[in-house]
Design a protein around this nucleic acid. Structure first.
Lengths: 148, 148
DNA sequence: ATGCTTGCAAAACATTTGCACGCAC
DNA sequence: GTGCGTGCAAATGTTTTGCAAGCAT
C-alpha cells in the first residue's frame, strides 16, 4: 500500500530468496498500520500459513530490517515493534492505550541534523523520533471519567 | 555529579523511603555516564551491597523512573537502559559499539512540538529523540580496516 | 546441486511477581 | 506499630539458536 515496489523484485534485489513465509510476512507488514510486534505478525501470518513457526518470523523480521525492507521500532515496551513503511517518518506513542501512530511527513530540519553532527562529532546517519502524547480517543475517555 | 540535590531529600520529597539499596542504586546511576541496563546496575551495586537482589534493582528502577528521579531509555536493544540525568537531553547511539552518548543541551524547537501537536491532534507531552551515527572512535577503526 | 530457509524445540535473556520477613518512618 | 521495601525463587514473556530437513535458485 505504502510501498508500491513489488515484493518479489524487492526481495531479490537485496540478495534474499522469496519464500512463501517471507512474502506473507512482508505483505502483512505492508498492509498494516499497526506497528505490530513479532507475536502479532505471527498470528496474522498463521492465518495464511498455519505451519509457520515463530522462529521463522523472528528470523525474517531481523533479516528484512537488516536489508532495509522494514523498520524496527524499539521505542516502547518490552517487545520490539516493526513497521512496513520504510519512508522516513515519525511516530507518536499514547501512554494510555500504548498504540503507536504515524506522524506523516514529519522530518527534522537539516539544520538540526547538522547541529547534532557538529556538537557530537558523530557521523550522523539518521535518527529516531517518538513523540509522546495522549491520543484524541483517550483524551475523550478522560473527560468522561473526570466528569463522574 | 550532574544532579546536586541530595539523594535523601530528593527521595523523601517524592514520598519514598530511603533504603540503603535505593540510595546506592541512585548513586551509581548519578555517578555514571554509561546509560546502563539493569544487569549493569546490579553488578555495580553488588560491590557495595553484596546481598541485594536483582528484583530489587528492577523494582527500584521502575519506581525511581515513575517518580522522575531517573530516566528510562528504551530506544535500542532488548534491554531497557537508564539515565541518572533527568535534565532534558538527547542521546546518540553508535550502531557499531552500541554505546549511548549524551548530546548535551540539544532540544527540539517549540515550533516543531506545536507542529506535531497540530498535525496529529495528540496532546503532546514530550518526545524521545535518538540520533544514530558512527562515533569518532569507531570511525577511526573503519579507516584502519579499510586501509588494509 | 548448493546453500539459504524453515520447523521444531530447547535455551538464553529480560523482566515481573508472590510471599514472608525486615526495616524506615 | 504500620506498611513500604527487600530477598528469594519461581513464573512470565521475548528472542535466539542448534539441528536436520526442505525448497528457491
Amino acid at each position: 500500500m505504502n510501498q508500491p515496489t513489488p515484493i518479489e523484485e524487492t526481495v531479490h534485489r537485496h540478495g534474499l530468496r522469496l519464500t512463501p513465509q517471507r512474502q506473507v510476512i512482508l505483505e502483512v507488514l505492508r498492509a498494516s498500520r499497526e506497528h505490530p510486534d513479532a507475536a502479532w505478525v505471527y498470528q496474522q501470518v498463521r492465518q495464511r500459513l498455519p505451519h509457520i513457526s515463530l522462529g521463522t518470523v523472528y528470523r525474517n523480521l531481523a533479516t528484512l530490517a537488516e536489508k532495509g525492507l522494514i523498520q524496527e521500532i524499539t521505542l516502547t515496551d518490552n517487545a520490539t515493534h516493526w513497521d512496513g513503511d520504510t519512508t522516513p517518518h515519525t511516530h507518536i506513542l499514547c501512554p494510555e492505550c500504548r498504540r503507536i501512530t504515524d506522524l506523516e511527513s514529519f522530518t527534522l530540519p537539516e539544520a538540526l541534523l547538522e547541529q547534532a553532527q557538529r556538537v557530537s562529532g558523530f557521523a550522523i546517519q539518521g535518527y529516531r523520533l517518538l513523540f509522546i502524547g495522549i491520543c484524541p480517543s483517550c483524551a475523550a475517555q478522560h473527560q468522561r471519567v473526570d466528569a463522574r
